[in-house]
Structures are given as C-alpha cells and as structure tokens.
Amino acid sequence: MKRKDLIRQLELAGCVLVRHGGKHDWYHNPTTNVSQPIPRHTEINEHLAKHILKLLANT
C-alpha cells in the first residue's frame, strides 16, 4: 500500500499527526486514545498497513 493512501485513510478516520520521528511519524486517534508509528517508506507492507488501520481507524 502506498504511504500517502494509508495516511489519507487514517486522517479520514479522525487520526492526527502527533510528531515526526527519526524513521517514523506518530499518528494518534483521539476517540480511541491509541497512538501508532507509521514508517516513512513509500510502500508499506499490506499486512502492516492493515494492522495499523485496525488499531487506529477501528475498521
């Protein structure tokens, strides 16, 4: 999955960027109070992307 597509889905679910890290960006969902790092690779593994969406977007 493309990183920009993952970020778009997270932002539509209400997640916000908390901070830029060294190799990851941290996103937080204020409704569920869960934070998760998002790698800065242009392509993110499908399993990892689904895991991140499951944790942050509650899908």
Score class of each variant (00 low, 15 high):
Leu55Gln: 14
Asn45His: 07
Val18Glu: 02
Gly21Lys: 07
Asn29Leu: 12
Glu43Gly: 06
Met1Thr: 10
Lys54His: 07
Leu56Thr: 02
Leu6Thr: 01
Ala49Ser: 15
Leu12Met: 07
Arg40Ile: 10
Met1His: 00
Ile52Gln: 06
Leu12Gly: 10
Ile7Met: 05
Asn29Lys: 09
Leu53Lys: 12
Gly21Arg: 09
Val16Ser: 04
Asn29Gly: 01
His24Asn: 02
Glu43Arg: 07
Thr32Glu: 00
Pro30Trp: 00
Met1Val: 11
Leu53Phe: 13
Leu56Trp: 06
Thr42Pro: 08
Val34Cys: 00
Lys23Phe: 15
Ile38Thr: 01
Asp25Trp: 02
Leu55His: 07
Ala57Tyr: 05
Glu11Pro: 02
Met1Glu: 11
Arg19Ala: 12
Val16Ile: 12
Val18Ser: 01
Asn33Arg: 11
Leu55Ile: 15
Pro39Gln: 07
Gln9Phe: 06
Thr32Ala: 13
Val34Asn: 04
Leu10Asn: 00
Ala49Gly: 09
Asp25Pro: 01
Tyr27Val: 03
Leu48Glu: 13
Val18Arg: 02
Gly21Leu: 14
His47Ser: 12
Pro30Cys: 00
His47Leu: 09
Gly22Gln: 04
Ala49Lys: 06
Gln9Ile: 03
Gly21Thr: 03
His51Cys: 11
Leu53Met: 06
Asp25Arg: 01
Val34Pro: 09
Val34Ala: 02
Trp26Met: 09
Ser35Asp: 06
Thr59Phe: 14
His20Gly: 05
Leu12Lys: 04
Gln9Glu: 06
Leu56Asp: 08
Lys54Ala: 02
Met1Tyr: 07
Asn33Asp: 15
Thr31Tyr: 14
Gly22Val: 02
His47Thr: 05
Glu46Asp: 12
Asp25Glu: 06
Asn45Arg: 14
Tyr27Gln: 01
Thr32Pro: 03
Lys54Trp: 04
Leu17Phe: 12
Asn58Val: 06
Lys54Leu: 03
His51Leu: 05
Ala13Asp: 13
Leu56Cys: 04
Leu12Ala: 07
